[in-house]
Amino acid sequence: MLSKPAIWVRPSFMIPKGRPAVIGCRGAGEAVEYQLHFEGGLSALERPKSPPVMNLVKFPIPAMTSHTAGQYRCSYRSGELWSELSDPLELVVTGENVTFRCQLETATSTFFLLKGGRSGRPQLRYGNLRAEFHLGPVTPAHRGTYRCFGSYNNHAWSFPSKPVKLLVKGDTGDTTFAPTEHTSSDHFLWNHTVQNLIRLGLAVLVLMALMGLLLEDWLHRRKSRERTHGASHRGCRRRL
């Protein structure tokens, strides 16, 4: 078994849009070939210079874009054996114009983009299966967690998408645009249809409770009338 390679990036894992970067991968033993994997697929091959210098190769990124941002791993070959993949390296691009893309599997008429914790009106776009929300050059005011919805009518929205967190670095507008997982601190925005069903269920429960009280009162009055009627018949028989 070959040991796991080491991977790193220079100058930083946060790279401004259009700037170059270099990913380094270091193997062990007599490494003769290196592979760079991007988002689970093979991205590049590189052979070390002869003679090899410290079992190290470099994979250049000429200009950073949203297409080159993501997760990288590397591996190396010694003889006929390939090493396991390195630990993941996450690269993010900063200083971009941000566009949110929303998509539904079922046709809808309207899409909404909602920023978490904001009480204002959501952004609206029309589309059938997908829509795009262009934020333009971002500022610190855009920082936050976003979700999108599809609207089937004015009162029925789809369930929210997974949250996407937009991070803004300092006051320069450098951004990180990355999906996040649901956590216990996430505040889910409920589907209007679900809320309506809950209200309807509560109304039915209240109605059933009122009907039960009315039925109980009617039975009580009926028993009282029967007792009174029975007492009157016994009194008549005694007089006869």
Rank of each mutant, 00 (worst) to 15 (best):
M1D: 13
K4H: 01
P5R: 00
I7M: 03
W8H: 07
F13A: 09
F13D: 09
P16Q: 09
K17P: 00
G18L: 11
G18I: 03
G18N: 13
R19K: 14
I23V: 11
I23C: 01
C25L: 14
Y34M: 06
Q35P: 00
L36R: 01
L36K: 01
H37W: 15
H37V: 12
E39K: 12
G41A: 14
S43L: 13
S43H: 15
L45D: 02
R47F: 09
P48C: 03
P51M: 11
N55D: 14
A63N: 05
H67Y: 09
Q71S: 07
S75F: 03
S75Y: 00
Y76I: 10
Y76G: 05
G79P: 02
L81D: 13
W82S: 01
W82R: 04
P88V: 02
V92M: 03
V92P: 00
V93A: 05
V93F: 00
E96W: 01
E96H: 04
E96G: 07
N97W: 04
V98H: 02
F100A: 06
F100V: 09
Q103A: 14
L104I: 01
L104K: 10
F111T: 00
F111S: 01
F111W: 01
F112E: 11
L113W: 02
L113A: 03
L114T: 11
K115D: 03
G116K: 13
P122N: 05
L124R: 15
R125G: 01
Y126F: 13
N128C: 08
L129S: 05
L129Q: 10
A131G: 01
A131H: 00
A131I: 05
F133Q: 02
L135S: 02
G136L: 08
T139D: 09
R143M: 12
G144M: 05
T145L: 10
Y146R: 04
Y146M: 04
R147E: 07
R147D: 02
C148L: 08
C148R: 04
F149W: 06
G150F: 01
G150I: 00
H155G: 00
A156G: 00
A156R: 07
S158D: 02
F159T: 11
P160T: 02
P160W: 05
P160K: 03
S161R: 03
S161G: 01
K162V: 04
K162W: 06
P163D: 05
L166Q: 02
V168T: 07
K169D: 14
G173A: 08
G173S: 06
D174S: 10
F177R: 03
E181C: 02
T183L: 06
S184E: 15
H187C: 08
L189Q: 10
L189H: 09
N191G: 02
N191S: 15
V194C: 11
Q195W: 13
N196D: 09
L197I: 08
L197M: 12
I198S: 04
I198T: 05
R199G: 07
R199E: 15
G201P: 00
L202M: 11
L202N: 07
A203T: 08
A203I: 07
A203C: 08
L205Q: 11
L205A: 14
L205E: 09
L205R: 10
L213S: 05
L215G: 11
E216Y: 11
D217F: 10
D217I: 11
K223G: 03
S224K: 13
E226V: 04
E226D: 06
T228M: 11
H229G: 04
G230H: 12
A231H: 11
S232M: 12
H233V: 15
H233K: 13
R237K: 09
R237T: 12
R237F: 10
R238A: 14
